[in-house]
Computed example of a mutant assay.
Amino acid sequence: MLPEEPSDDVALLLARTRAPGAGQVATWDVSPDPAQVAATRQAATEQLTAWGLDETAFVTELVVSELVTNAIRYGAAPIQLRLIRDQTLICEVSDGSSTSPHLRRAHQDDEGGRGLLLVAQLTQRWGSRQTTRGKTIWCEQPLTPLF
């Protein structure tokens, strides 16, 4: 479709042609209180059990815990967790801050700073996108565990 030597930049537009059904998406609003992390993690685990994805619970609990904690600590209200069961399990945490996250290498004696590194190591892919109300951090993991 392109000439041998394009005279300008080339862009590819990719669009999803089908949306997941209502039974494939679970969404929770999260209060910006650190005490809510455990309850949110438990709600996600219960949803995985309802979907028959118990084998993904361990990794998903860690991912939810890290992303929700980061949203509470560094983001802004409103905070929302969304799980999408499609060809992969997608975990999204949205918050009202437009500040982009970044991986950092924590020093051995640091008490924190390893959350996104854990997410990156435990999932297939992760990233962030800006929204009209802030940002969303997302990650994908296979429906069957890697280990």
Results as ranks from 00 to 15, higher is better:
residue 8 D to S: 14
residue 9 D to A: 12
residue 9 D to G: 14
residue 10 V to L: 08
residue 12 L to S: 06
residue 12 L to H: 09
residue 13 L to D: 06
residue 13 L to V: 15
residue 14 L to H: 11
residue 14 L to Y: 08
residue 14 L to R: 13
residue 15 A to M: 10
residue 15 A to D: 12
residue 18 R to E: 10
residue 18 R to Q: 10
residue 21 G to Q: 10
residue 21 G to T: 10
residue 21 G to M: 00
residue 21 G to D: 11
residue 22 A to M: 01
residue 23 G to N: 04
residue 24 Q to Y: 00
residue 24 Q to T: 06
residue 25 V to H: 03
residue 25 V to P: 02
residue 25 V to W: 00
residue 26 A to N: 00
residue 28 W to L: 08
residue 28 W to M: 03
residue 28 W to V: 02
residue 29 D to G: 10
residue 29 D to E: 15
residue 30 V to L: 01
residue 30 V to D: 03
residue 31 S to W: 05
residue 32 P to M: 03
residue 32 P to C: 08
residue 33 D to S: 09
residue 33 D to Y: 03
residue 33 D to H: 07
residue 33 D to P: 05
residue 36 Q to T: 07
residue 37 V to W: 00
residue 37 V to Q: 02
residue 37 V to N: 01
residue 38 A to Q: 09
residue 39 A to F: 08
residue 39 A to S: 13
residue 40 T to S: 07
residue 41 R to Y: 00
residue 42 Q to E: 12
residue 44 A to F: 05
residue 45 T to K: 09
residue 45 T to F: 01
residue 45 T to G: 11
residue 45 T to H: 11
residue 47 Q to L: 02
residue 47 Q to R: 14
residue 49 T to K: 14
residue 49 T to F: 06
residue 50 A to T: 13
residue 50 A to L: 09
residue 51 W to F: 04
residue 53 L to Y: 02
residue 53 L to M: 10
residue 55 E to M: 12
residue 58 F to T: 14
residue 58 F to I: 12
residue 58 F to H: 12
residue 58 F to D: 14
residue 59 V to R: 07
residue 59 V to M: 07
residue 59 V to C: 06
residue 60 T to H: 00
residue 60 T to Q: 04
residue 61 E to K: 15
residue 61 E to P: 08
residue 62 L to W: 08
residue 63 V to E: 05
residue 63 V to R: 04
residue 65 S to K: 04
residue 66 E to N: 05
residue 66 E to D: 11
residue 66 E to V: 03
residue 67 L to Q: 04
residue 68 V to I: 11
residue 68 V to W: 00
residue 70 N to F: 07
residue 70 N to A: 06
residue 71 A to R: 08
residue 72 I to T: 04
residue 73 R to E: 13
residue 74 Y to G: 02
residue 76 A to D: 10
residue 76 A to Q: 12
residue 77 A to Y: 00
residue 77 A to W: 01
residue 78 P to K: 05
residue 78 P to D: 01
residue 78 P to T: 05
residue 78 P to R: 02
residue 78 P to Y: 05
residue 78 P to V: 00
residue 79 I to L: 07
residue 79 I to R: 00
residue 79 I to V: 07
residue 80 Q to R: 15
residue 80 Q to S: 12
residue 84 I to R: 09
residue 86 D to V: 00
residue 86 D to M: 02
residue 89 L to C: 12
residue 91 C to S: 13
residue 91 C to Y: 02
residue 91 C to N: 11
residue 93 V to S: 06
residue 95 D to L: 07
residue 96 G to C: 04
residue 97 S to E: 01
residue 97 S to M: 03
residue 97 S to A: 13
residue 101 P to G: 11
residue 101 P to Q: 10
residue 102 H to D: 05
residue 102 H to M: 03
residue 102 H to T: 10
residue 102 H to A: 13
residue 105 R to T: 14
residue 105 R to H: 11
residue 107 H to M: 10
residue 108 Q to V: 15
residue 109 D to G: 07
residue 109 D to L: 15
residue 109 D to S: 14
residue 109 D to N: 12
residue 112 G to H: 07
residue 112 G to V: 13
residue 113 G to P: 11
residue 115 G to Y: 01
residue 115 G to S: 12
residue 116 L to A: 05
residue 117 L to R: 13
residue 118 L to F: 10
residue 119 V to N: 09
residue 120 A to V: 01
residue 121 Q to Y: 02
residue 123 T to A: 05
residue 123 T to E: 03
residue 124 Q to K: 14
residue 125 R to Y: 06
residue 126 W to A: 09
residue 126 W to I: 06
residue 126 W to K: 04
